[in-house]
Structure formats: structure tokens, C-alpha cells
């Protein structure tokens, strides 16, 4: 419920403020706001959000092998 509530809240906010921004000739603000709100609500969706890439997951993929190599070279075990 909490997730769905936040997803709805953020999408509603994005839509209302996005429309106001458009009416005030701030198209770029509206665009980024809507994108930001869509991204946030995607993270809040139950099944999609849990499988979405986060900074932690991305860094584990990219830096994990580097960290393991460096640590084995330094002789520091897990």
C-alpha cells in the first residue's frame, strides 16, 4: 500500500506541477520533473522496482571484480 501510495502521489505531483511549468513557459523544468517522477514511481512498483538497477547493484557489477583482484593482490581475504 505504501509503495502504491507513493507511486500515485509522485505521479500526481509530477503531472500537476509539470502542467503548471508548461503553462509558465518552463518546458525543460516540466520535462525533467515528469521524468524524475516516472523514475521514482517505477522504483515504487512492486515487481519492477525490486528488479530495477540501483547504484549499489551497478557498482557491485562494475567494481566487484576490481575489488576482488586488488584485495587478492594485497593479500586481504574476504
Amino acid at each position: 500500500m505504501l509503495h502504491a501510495g507513493i507511486a500515485v502521489l509522485v505521479l500526481t505531483y509530477g503531472t500537476i506541477v509539470g502542467v503548471i511549468s508548461m503553462r509558465r513557459k518552463r518546458g525543460r523544468d516540466a520535462l525533467w520533473l515528469v521524468l524524475l517522477c516516472c523514475l521514482t514511481s517505477l522504483y515504487e512498483l512492486p515487481h519492477i522496482g525490486a528488479n530495477m538497477l540501483t547504484v549499489e547493484k551497478a557498482h557491485k557489477l562494475v567494481y566487484g571484480p576490481i575489488a576482488r583482484t586488488v584485495m587478492s593482490k594485497l593479500g586481504i581475504g574476504d
Binding site: 507513493i6 502521489l9 509522485v10 505531483y13 509530477g14 520533473l33 524524475l36 517522477c37 523514475l39 521514482t40 522504483y43 515504487e44 522496482g49 525490486a50 530495477m52 540501483t54 547504484v55 549499489e56 547493484k57
Partner: peptide
């Protein structure tokens, strides 16, 4: 507000 909620969403899905 959206950035605050993005912070919430990201931290909730991490660690």
C-alpha cells in the same frame, strides 16, 4: 519533493 522521494525509493531498494 520528487528528489526526496527518489532518495527514499533508491535507499529502500538498496542494501
Amino acid at each position: 519533493l520528487p528528489i526526496g522521494l527518489l532518495f527514499f525509493a533508491i535507499s529502500e531498494r538498496s542494501f
